[in-house]
Nucleic acid binder design. Structure first.
Lengths: 200, 200
DNA sequence: AGGCGCATGTAAGCCGTTACATGATTCC
DNA sequence: GGAATCATGTAACGGCTTACATGCGCCT
């Protein structure tokens, strides 16, 4: 009934999205933020616990005390109808353009200040990071496709699959881009192909 | 000679990167943060001015007072040798994995809670946003390619071109992904092709 | 005996956004 | 006369990270 804050923060919606899938303790939410969701949103427990209290006083979630291993009472949180409603309205509300913050690209943007060989070590690290993420996404996609519900648009697995496939496609593009950059840097660092045959 | 902070913040490196390309006033840096750099890093002037002072007390940049239009003295900042050195070391230093924060994907991840038609309006907005960015990147790439220095790895234009091409490739992948998602949502929202002939 | 996983909380401090404040010149 | 651009700064506030704090049960 209270309305401390009319609409949750971004973190609040991330939590509502998690709880819409399954009721959880704060600790569990923190762990789940590392996996699938964590690939596009992250939060530490120190951020999650205060947000849970705000969401509850605003009436979006509620908790029951269950048996648990901590020194304090263990609480399992679940969405209220108002919470599900807020999540749904947010999903369909207008999108405003979000600012991009990409440290890796920021570095490459200043790579002209160093010699091409150093720039290659940077682009190699970038490629490795993208490839590692890509491998994780691909494994998850394959696992999800075998699970029931992954072809039902009303099932969470369907949405998980869509987002993961997006990750696969963009990371693949990023890996391919890294390789072309690498080739161009190498061409700039090395002598021409005719000259390169001289030593092997 | 002072060393208030041994190494600049991420914002500090963004500023050093800008100043390595050309000396600027704080106001000008803020404007430049909206354009090319702003596509992967942003900052407001209220963040830039304090950071400029920190960078200067740390010896990475210095300023000269020039004639300008403001009520206070107008300062043009430039990199010091120490600043260029710090920038170079940062570019080649080890990369730690950066957390991703993607609000749009977070929404799609909860799109299973709404009906497919509503999800389609979301994915349409996402596609439009990606397409708009893609168009900007493509235009800048074409412009840059005609400029001198874009094939010289020691020239800023070269690095600009690389980063923009990366943006083009990933945004293209994102647009393509949006379209496949749309098709699948449409298939789920509409009856099968055989059944769809019954009523219109 | 010590470390790890479960489980919840608080505090300090940085990073970032929004808004307030000032004032000249130029263009409509 | 009013708005936009140049130009620099401060203040308040929220988001996020890092670190501190507690304590049980299980495994080695």
């Amino acid at each position: 009934m209270s309305a401390d804050r009319v609409t949750p923060s971004n973190l609040g919606f991330a939590i509502l999205g998690l709880l819409a899938r399954s009721a959880s303790t704060g600790y569990d939410l923190a762990r789940r933020m590392e996996n699938p969701v964590g690939y596009f949103w992250t939060a530490r427990h120190s951020q999650i616990y205060p947000e849970l209290r705000r969401l509850e006083t605003s009436g979006f979630i509620e908790h029951e005390v269950i048996e648990g291993a901590g020194p304090r009472p263990t609480k399992r949180y679940a969405l209220t109808p108002a919470g599900l409603d807020a999540l749904r309205r947010w999903v369909t509300s207008d999108l405003e353009t979000q600012p991009v913050r990409d440290l890796e690209t920021l570095r490459l943007w200043s790579a002209w200040t160093v010699d091409p060989r150093s720039a290659i070590t940077l682009i190699d690290q970038m490629e490795q990071a993208h490839a590692a993420r890509l491998a994780v996404y691909e494994a998850l996609v394959e696992e999800l496709q075998t699970l029931p519900g992954s072809d039902d648009p009303a099932h969470p697995h369907f949405a998980s699959l869509l987002t993961l496939e997006g990750g696969v496609l963009t990371r693949r593009a990023a890996v391919r881009w890294c390789r072309t950059v690498r080739r161009r840097l190498l061409a700039a660092a090395a002598p021409t192909s005719a000259a390169s045959t001289r030593s092997g």
